[in-house]
Design a protein around this nucleic acid. Structure first.
Lengths: 348, 348
DNA sequence: CTGAAAGCGCTTACAG
DNA sequence: CTGAAAGCGCTTACAG
């Protein structure tokens, strides 16, 4: 990194003036009205004469006045929706966020996102959002305890994405993970595969409330139905971990003819490992249908669970909660199989 | 989307109790001290006896007290860094954010991200962050005017990523867009290409202060040196737009033997278009070295400008600004060529 | 329709 | 080391 410390065109030091920003008091003074009147105008509250509204708006314009959200929060709302998001590099979460942004865009709310750093607890970003008095919270947090969330939910409406725990205190939006995993595995079986490996994340337990746990549970059930020994490799956070997990599957005594990766990100690393191992005849399938899955160089069979729609639904449910709904809703987004070139009949 | 409106296990309605959260007053009362004392403990300010600190911390623990950031902001700081980010689906921005998150993680600051919806002005999310009294702002906003930013900068430290405008009032972190573009074009020329097409974004003007403008400027200069007519296609926001832009290049009277796409996202769409057009012999190169570029199915020649490092640098510079630096710094991240299989000599 | 007053939950000098 | 008081910038009843 090269630093160019001194500006070229402005030789004199430019010191920061403590630029006093206009307050509601300044606006009131300039418009010759009370602060309460200004407050009413900016909140679009009822009971202001057109003349006063005009004078106040002119003063606001002239001063470039913008209300401090923090000060408003002391009495009213922040008009802010918080979104906790793990793994910024996972394009499936980007899809969810795209849907969420879309819905928020049509409202008076502002969306702010707090990312969870890799390997850290989701508690800190969630707490950070609540400390900032968000009016509602959407979170993708498989790791935090239901009980902890239920202590937060009475004070702030919460919608959780990807949790199958069906709490009465917060809403959930999930994919149909069991249906999707079954669709995918049936597809592989129909192609003739019997030795199917599975890559999942380190923390998944069969049938737990997380998406990976659900998918793993279905995998184990179907392996049992087939009478085959489950062949599971677990991956840590990094891309290298997923790569290594795939390598371990390939190094098994009886290597799989197909790999069901717990999501597309894992599947992409599996493809990389297969290419490096020269195992081009092994099928790979993922989960999520991220944009790149349809690229001709990737051509990945996967499950589309409509991430954009999940993001939209999550925000809609949250807005309902903020508007007063107190009955829980647990929405499920359907799963659809996308068959592409990465899966085919096993080599004989 | 299937809604399960009624919870299975909790037949009775669960109504939201207006769960009064603990305030500093509650902590003070429980600990038997003044609010000022509690304030000092939570800010780790100097001048508190160990005994008092212990009593206060016990009370905080017992009540689950968390200070409201909005209330603190009225007098002090928010310990919040705002990050405005366009195009959530661009994995290069995810890289930058990864670097930013990393650095923030080691500080007492919280990072909050405000995404700009596709096609919208970056002003709204930036204003939203400032309204929330962030202590500093990092933004990737090619579209907003320098003058507008310079009105904000006296009140809030700002670091802009990807702007070559060298303002004395805010810092910038850019890649070496001219060096990178030149590296890439020389590489294509060395391979023997003479008809090289370029895909850029709709708003880029040759040599303007944006990364795309810089790259376009270099492209036109080198085309002039070569004595060839520039062949430029412009893409709108969507993936389909980039695809169409590539199709237009291929449909030219004398189609290019190589395409220099303004970034990897555009390059991926160009690859898609080439595959659909059966034009496998046309070389493609991108810019940014996003993770997927190294995937064997993509194998994209590109420029690595160390996005993670740019994110790290941006936050470091911002922290320096917050700490009081008032001289501008304009950091440049070096460009490195990554040669992969997507570029090769033109077919004869 | 309009405004004076109280108060939201903190921090900041300032006495003691 | 400790606390009473003032004040940050808003909104909310409540009079007029």
């Amino acid at each position: 990194m090269i630093y160019e410390s001194l500006p070229r065109c402005y030789p004199e030091a430019v010191t920061r003036t403590a630029a006093a920003q206009a307050t509601i008091q300044d606006v009131a003074a300039l418009a010759g009205v009370s602060r309460a009147a200004v407050s009413k105008v900016i909140r679009d509250a009822y009971g202001v004469s057109p003349a006063m509204r005009e004078r106040v708006n002119a003063a606001i314009e002239q001063l470039g006045y913008r209300p401090r959200v923090g000060a408003r929060a002391l009495r009213g709302a922040t008009h802010t929706i918080g979104f906790e998001l793990p793994a910024l590099t996972n394009p499936f979460f980007a899809k969810i966020l795209t849907g969420a942004t879309e819905v928020v865009e049509d409202t008076a709310y502002q969306l702010i996102v707090a990312p969870t750093p890799p390997g850290k607890s989701e508690r800190r970003p969630i707490d950070a959002l609540l400390d900032r008095q968000v009016d509602g919270l959407v979170a993708i947090s498989p790791e935090v305890e239901q009980e902890w969330l239920e202590r937060l939910a009475p004070a702030t409406p919460i919608v959780m994405i990807g949790r199958h725990d069906d709490s009465p205190l917060y809403d959930t939006v999930t994919g149909d993970d069991e249906g999707g995993a079954e669709l995918l595995l049936r597809h592989l079986i129909d192609l003739g595969h019997r030795r199917i490996g599975h890559i999942t994340i380190a923390t998944a337990r069969p049938g737990d409330t997380s998406p990976h746990g659900r998918r793993l549970g279905v995998y184990e059930r179907i392996a049992a139905e087939l009478g085959t020994t489950p062949l599971v490799a677990r991956s840590g956070q990094g891309a290298d971990d997923a790569y290594d997990a795939a390598r371990r599957l390939l190094a098994a005594d009886q290597p799989p003819t197909a790999i069901f990766a717990g999501n597309d990100t894992l599947a992409l690393e599996a493809q990389r490992a297969l290419a490096d191992a020269g195992a081009r005849d092994v099928s790979v399938a993922g989960y999520d249908d991220v944009d790149i899955a349809g690229h001709p160089g990737i051509d990945l069979t996967t499950i589309d669970q409509d991430g954009v729609g999940m993001g939209r639904t999550a925000v809609r449910l949250l807005l309902e909660r903020i508007a007063g709904r107190d009955q829980p809703v647990h929405a499920v987004s359907p799963a659809a199989l996308r068959v592409r070139g990465s899966t085919r009949a096993p080599a004989v």
